[in-house]
Amino acid sequence: MAPQISPSILSADFAKLADDVALISDAADWVHVDVMDNHFVPNLTIGLPVVEALLKHSALPLDCHLMIEDPDRWAPQYAEAGAGSVTIHAEAAKAPVRTLRTIRAAGARAGLGINPATPVEPYEDLLGEIDMLLLMTVEPGFGGQKFLDVVLPKVRRARKMIEGRDLWLQVDGGVSAETIERCAEAGADVFVAGNAVYGADDPAEAVRALRGKAQQATDSAAWAL
């Protein structure tokens, strides 16, 4: 699969989100929306009302990443609102199979997120219930953190786990022009980038540059041959 770029609006200007989403609409594949509740992670961002408003103005599908304490309750509502993808965290979900199936039934892609210190292997049995596996490459909660190279071996193991399945492998955290090639070489194919996009003078051009680096690394990666 060709690399996909999902710019995170966590690094955008919250006072003009629709305008900032428009800046990348011709270059990106998704709009990554970080939903944080100040319980699962120590930060409070945006919720369902903002997502519903963005859906009216975004030409791109929304990639909603729920870093919240009770995803079983809230995740289906994001899918029902029209999000293209809804990711819940393995560490937070109490009924992941039911919740993932409900997300899919509402018409969205279902994602499972895993924190840096959480091993991926215990969730192999859930791969049939998801469309995307998200591996955090920073501790969730804040943008602008330094990329954690320690996660790359887990990305490689995850790539082997999902071999033969129609699954996307997303990385989120510290993805930039300096790190995206390592992520792609390890096996990721969907890349969340916040500061690397919205910190650039031209966000759309930054997206194109990131895609080019990811594609070049993917083309030479052993797992893609």
Rank of each mutant, 00 (worst) to 15 (best):
L62S: 03
R165E: 01
S85N: 09
S85C: 11
V97F: 03
L23I: 04
S220Y: 05
A12C: 13
I114Q: 11
Q77D: 15
K56A: 10
A106Y: 05
A28P: 04
A184H: 07
Q145H: 07
E185W: 06
L62D: 01
A18E: 12
H32Y: 04
F14Y: 15
E205D: 15
S6W: 11
I114H: 14
F147Q: 09
A204M: 08
D20W: 10
A18F: 05
A92F: 01
A27I: 05
Q216W: 06
M136D: 14
M67I: 10
P153E: 09
G82M: 06
I5M: 10
D72I: 09
V41A: 06
R104E: 06
V86H: 03
D63H: 04
E121L: 06
E163T: 13
N115P: 11
L148K: 13
E52T: 04
I162Q: 03
A83D: 02
A59D: 14
A92K: 02
V138N: 06
P119V: 14
G111T: 02
D166M: 00
F147K: 09
G199D: 08
A188P: 09
I5P: 05
V35R: 01
P76M: 03
V207H: 00
S220L: 15
D26L: 02
T179W: 11
E185Y: 00
R98E: 14
V33P: 03
E91I: 01
T99M: 00
A27H: 11
R182P: 00
L167D: 06
W223A: 04
L133S: 10
A79K: 05
D29P: 01
A75E: 10
V86W: 02
D131A: 07
A105C: 00
P7S: 08
L44K: 04
Q145C: 07
S58Q: 00
R98S: 14
Y78Q: 06
R156C: 00
E178G: 12
S220W: 01
V197Y: 10
V31P: 08
L112C: 08
A2S: 14
G164S: 04
R211G: 12
T87K: 01
P140K: 07
H39K: 07
A59F: 00
W168P: 00
V192M: 04
L148T: 12
L48F: 06
G174Y: 14
R211K: 15
E80L: 11
I68D: 06
I162W: 03
A204Y: 11
E121M: 08
T87R: 00
Q77Y: 13
G82C: 05
L148A: 12
L135F: 12
H32K: 00
D70I: 08
T99V: 06
M136T: 13
V35D: 10
L134Q: 07
P42F: 10
D166N: 13
G212T: 09
K56V: 02
K213C: 01
A222T: 12
I5F: 06
A53R: 12
I9T: 15
R157E: 08
H89C: 04
E69L: 13
G107S: 01
D63P: 02
Q145M: 05
T179V: 13
L60F: 04
V41Y: 08
V50F: 02
R109Q: 15
A28H: 01
A79P: 14
G47N: 09
A95D: 15
A93M: 02
N195K: 05
S25D: 11
D172Q: 08
D20K: 07
L60G: 02
L44T: 03
